[in-house]
Design a protein around this nucleic acid. Structure first.
Lengths: 154, 154
DNA sequence: CGTGTATCGTCAGTGCACCGATGAAAGTCA
DNA sequence: TGACTTTCATCGGTGCACTGACGATACACG
């Protein structure tokens, strides 16, 4: 009898939070376009013509995963993918008109969903919620990327 | 140019948080046993002989997923699975000695990992972190399960 | 008793997410 | 110029997570 309470395990809570979001997205936003797919569309709205690897970095997807997501978006005609003539290793990505349209259409629905998702928290609590999660996620990612040697690094 | 800041999207943060945890788990806890698998082991330590569906409910996994997780744990000899003689639809689960051993061994490593994971937050912030995430996740799950009609439901 | 309904587990299909290996392209340096 | 190293994309493998459909079992009602 040495069972622990999973509610005190941040990893378990993180997984449940993500599942909850997945369900809400599926019902309130879209059944075709997933949240990671939207993140890719959004990155390409901000910076058209970005290369695939950098897009992955922007949205937090590794090389294998971004390749699959891009492949699906391409199959649906939401983006175009061309080899960089300057650097034959890179794939440059650009949204199609349809891709732009999908991105714009989802924006409204996502805003509505976020309201529902965060409804249990008061406004000031929502700010704390964002801050705490971001700090934990950033720190954990920092453990992976051994810290770029900036000027004042020891 | 109508790109949004993904840092204001709770779903995106939830995904990044979970990925960060996944990486930390992989390096600090175990490469064989995943966090959901541990959750199942833990549920069976608390309540041996539970049926498969209820275990899934306890740890937040749907029927399909719990079936796969249980299958992997069974293949590794960490639990036994028998048909309920009272109800032929149910599968009853029970940890083996090896399953108990794995659960006990991981406990220490998980505690260490949680410390590292939550290190960026002060003690009182950690409490808030748990509270906010749990409230959001619970509420979103509640939207799915239409609320059991308790005595004072309207 | 028999028919209809609900529940449990499984299976097929889709999608995210990681690792490690591989091959192509680019850059470095002797 | 030729060999070494790095970087990017892809591929194969594993695992989590959901949906929808299916068969078997159990239950409830007439």
């Amino acid at each position: 009898m040495a069972a622990v309470d999973l509610a005190t395990h941040p990893g378990h809570l993180a997984r449940r939070l993500q599942q909850a979001h997945y369900l809400l997205w599926n019902t309130m936003v879209s059944e075709e376009t997933t949240s990671p797919q939207y993140a890719v569309l959004n990155a390409l709205v901000a910076e058209p013509g970005l290369d695939q690897r950098t897009v992955g970095e922007r949205v937090g997807l590794d090389r294998s995963t971004i390749a699959e997501v891009v492949s699906r978006l391409g199959r649906r005609g939401l983006l175009d993918k061309v080899r960089d003539p300057q650097d034959g290793r890179r794939s440059l990505l650009r949204l199609t008109d349809e891709g732009l349209r999908v991105h714009r259409r989802l924006g409204v629905r996502i805003a509505r969903m976020n309201q529902v998702f965060l409804a249990p928290l008061a406004a000031d609590e929502q700010a704390v919620f964002f801050d705490l999660i971001r700090r934990v996620a950033d720190a954990a990612e920092g453990l992976r990327n051994p810290a770029e040697p900036t000027a004042a690094a020891g």
